[in-house]
Design a protein around this nucleic acid. Structure first.
Length: 577
RNA sequence: UGGGGCGUCGACAAGCGGUAAGUCACAGGAUUUUGGAUCCUGCAUUCGGAGGUUCGAAUCCUCCCGCCCCAGCCA
């Protein structure tokens, strides 16, 4: 296990969440021989997202916090019509990437199909299950409603012998898909609809990604899950709130079958994140509607998307630890996620200069052919990361936003006549502004530099308030930069019932900049490596589209920007050309 | 309208009868060769509402209000 324990889970004085509290009590009461064994049970029918990360961190985290604690990875693969091997592969990759290890405990519910069948037979023999010939529509009718009890199926009182025979025929393929089901015989009048003779097995001729065509009947979730947990010796079966109504059924199967291991199911509230959606169905709609480039589009809240966006496993784990675990429905502010990636990258990302929207600057009093090597520290937060050389010359690029012809109050950057520091280089003063005669756009600046300020210090103690990043025109390379922003404009895109969530998509969630100039060393970096582009944000090399010939960077998250905040509150932001 | 669950700062979230932790966000200030980072400071007389019990209630009781989940041969 490579995870770092967060302080709140290792500090005994810190408060535990209600699940860890329950487990601590169980341990104190000597339940389960002192064992703690959890599991993460995804269905391989889609990609994992940050909501799953919460569950993964919870389950694997709890196991890691206890001596001898274990967490299994188990695929809940009981519905071959929706599942696929490609999802099991992506899920394993994502769990591993998040930093968790299931050791040799990789399981599949399909591993238990034979045993499950035997359990079903046992139930039939006990008179607790029966084969029902009702059609799906009839079953629904017989189930009753929220306020009215259901009616018993006419097939409910078949003999055990007949049921055994019929069930065997179901298995051997003698009946059509959907023509019969095996049902638990519980209580058609139960106020909990899950207890109104739930279906245990359905006939479904679909090739299973692991068992092939061995089966034409497949067990349902409720029957499978509790028994899979029991077979694996799970002590605490942690799931989300919508399964709370299923708990009596979970317990019923285990009680009826008198199994040795009866795990305790505990439900917690699933994660909701502001400015995005965490529903497999809706995420799929974005992918299929080509509203994003795929499951790993850097705007997607999927693990694959976050990874491509530049999020680190550490930041996601810290986030999951911080949001807590409770039963109340909530929406976590995405700013909290952004806080954790900034915190992690601030510590670890090498600083580098990149000009996203270049504005040419000529230093008039700098010799034509001269090139100087300037020392630049790689990370002021970590001197151990060393320094590098950055080349300075007569023709440079600075950021368009670092110049303002008519500077507003408190604008510390370059403007006609003002002086700023070029990071790691010299002080420069703007002497002349060249504009496009038709558009009025500022296209070039003429400046002078002070040779006495090499490295960015002046001996006379004169203070410049602004420091800009820059790049030498001749000693920089072109790059594409993708600026990502929130996927949705609304904090909660589904809170308006009559408006489709897609109407709140942020039209500016992706802005592609193609004429950026970056330090030459950035052309040669490995996919996924991350940097802080000085004064702008954290960026990573795109793992799909970047190449040394055409480097592509994704903005993971911007730096906090108090000047932008001031401008925004004043409404005086400058336009980009 | 049956059953189950949940309501504590803008967002999360502790609190478990002794007088509202923490984090993010936000707002000030210090500092700064990133308007970054860092560091200080401020930010719920009040816990969905109303009653009640108690010397004392977010915590216990009663009633009310609001939100979520359940009528798949999905999980």
């Amino acid at each position: 296990m490579t995870i770092n324990f967060s302080p709140e889970h290792t500090d005994p004085s810190a408060s535990l969440d209600f699940i860890r509290n329950i487990i601590a009590e169980d341990l104190k009461a000597n339940k389960n021989d002192g064992r703690v064994h959890t599991r993460f049970p995804p269905e391989p029918n889609g990609y994992l997202h940050i909501g799953h990360a919460k569950s993964i961190c919870l389950n694997f985290g709890i196991a890691a916090e206890h001596k001898g604690g274990l967490c299994n990875l188990r695929f809940d693969d009981t519905n071959p019509s929706k599942e696929d091997i490609k999802y099991v592969e992506s899920i394993m990759k994502d769990v591993r990437w998040l930093g968790f290890d299931w050791g040799d405990r990789l399981f599949y519910a399909s591993d238990y199909f034979d045993r499950l069948y035997q359990y079903a037979v046992q139930l039939i023999k006990k008179g607790k299950a029966y084969v029902c010939d009702l059609s799906p529509d009839e079953i629904r009718e017989y189930r009753g409603t929220l306020t009215e009890p259901g009616r018993e199926s006419p097939y409910r009182n078949r003999s055990a012998e007949e049921n055994l025979d019929l069930f065997e025929c179901m298995r051997s393929g003698e009946f059509e898909d959907g023509s019969r089901v095996l049902r638990a015989k519980i209580d058609m009048a139960s106020p909990n609809l899950n207890m109104r003779d739930p279906v245990m097995y359905r006939i479904l001729r679909a090739e299973h990604h692991r068992t092939g065509n061995k089966w034409c009947i497949y067990p349902m979730y409720d029957f499978t899950h509790c028994l899979s947990d029991s077979i694996e010796g799970i002590t605490h079966s942690i799931c989300t709130m919508e399964f709370e109504n299923n708990r009596p059924l979970y317990d019923w199967f285990l009680d009826q079958l008198e199994v040795d291991c009866h795990p305790r199911q505990i439900e917690f509230a699933r994660l909701n994140l502001s400015h995005t959606i965490l529903s497999k169905r809706k995420l799929l709609a974005l992918v299929e509607g080509k509203l994003v480039s795929g499951w790993d589009d850097p705007r997607m809240p999927t693990i694959a998307g976050l990874r491509r966006r530049g999020y680190t496993p550490e930041s996601i784990r810290n986030f999951c630890d911080r949001i807590g675990v409770a039963k109340r429905e909530s929406v976590v502010d995405i700013a909290l996620l952004e806080h954790y990636i900034r915190e992690d990258l601030n510590r670890r990302a090498p600083r580098v200069m990149a000009v996203l929207r270049p504005l040419k600057v000529i230093i008039d009093n700098y010799p034509e052919e001269k090139v100087e090597e300037m020392d630049a520290e790689n990370n002021p937060e970590d001197p151990g990361m060393g320094s590098r050389k950055v080349l300075f010359s007569k023709t440079l690029y600075i950021e368009q936003h670092d110049f303002r012809e008519n500077p507003p109050k408190k604008f510390f950057r370059l403007s006609p006549g003002s002086e700023i520091r070029l990071k790691h280089a010299y002080y420069i003063k703007c002497t002349k502004v060249i504009k496009d005669e038709h558009t009025g756009e500022v296209i070039q600046l003429h400046c002078t530099y002070d040779p006495e300020t090499r490295g960015g210090w002046s001996k006379d103690g004169r203070i410049v308030k602004g420091t800009s990043h820059w790049v030498s025109a001749a000693h920089s390379v072109k790059a594409e930069v993708r600026l990502y922003d929130h996927l949705f404009l609304r904090a909660n895109p589904d809170d308006e019932k009559d408006r489709d969530f897609r109407t709140f998509l942020n039209p500016n969630s992706l802005e592609t900049l193609t004429s950026c100039r970056v330090e030459p060393c950035l052309a040669e970096t490995a996919p996924g490596s991350f940097y802080q582009f000085l004064r702008q944000g954290y960026f990573c090399v795109d793992s799909v589209d970047s190449s040394p010939e055409k480097p592509v960077f994704n903005r993971t998250v911007s730096l906090r920007d108090s000047w932008a905040k001031i401008e925004k509150s004043r409404g005086t932001e400058a336009p980009y050309f």
